[in-house]
């Protein structure tokens, strides 16, 4: 019973992260409001982080932190390399979001609109 559910879970987690990426891409491609585009970018970020963490998961594994008396437990630990990767990716994603939002504030001060179709003269 549990194994059956676990197999469904495999498709569920991969499918959910890929769907999250696709929803974010849809927002980036079709929306006209600049803030909506940045929201879509942050949704894509979340999907990619979930995908990377899922690749490193090990069934029945523990977090990659050693305790005294269990120094030999390295075989049952999940992969720590994607976790370190995602740790840095989250911080960089925050920096990207902050720069994008400050550019949006600047554009709004100059053009008084957030619609990308109405911002035609792109110099200030």
């Amino acid at each position: 019973m549990d194994d059956k559910l676990f197999e469904i879970l495999e498709f569920g987690v991969y499918g959910a992260s890929i769907l999250l990426i696709l929803i974010g891409l849809y927002a980036v491609l079709t929306k006209r409001s600049l803030i909506k585009i940045v929201i879509g970018m942050s949704i894509i970020d979340g999907g990619i982080h979930l995908l990377l963490i899922t690749i490193g998961y090990l069934k029945g594994g523990t977090a990659p932190i050693f305790s005294p008396g269990y120094e030999e437990a390295a075989g049952q630990m999940v992969d720590p390399v994607p976790q370190a990767l995602v740790l840095t990716a989250i911080v960089i994603g925050f920096g990207v979001t902050a720069v994008a939002l400050s550019l949006i504030i600047r554009l709004y001060r100059h053009h008084h609109t957030l619609e990308i179709d109405e911002i035609k003269r792109l110099k200030w």
Partner: peptide, 13 residues
Amino acid sequence: LFAAFSGLGFGVT
């Protein structure tokens, strides 16, 4: 994407 990642396996070494 789904075809690529479903072949990877989930929770296996």
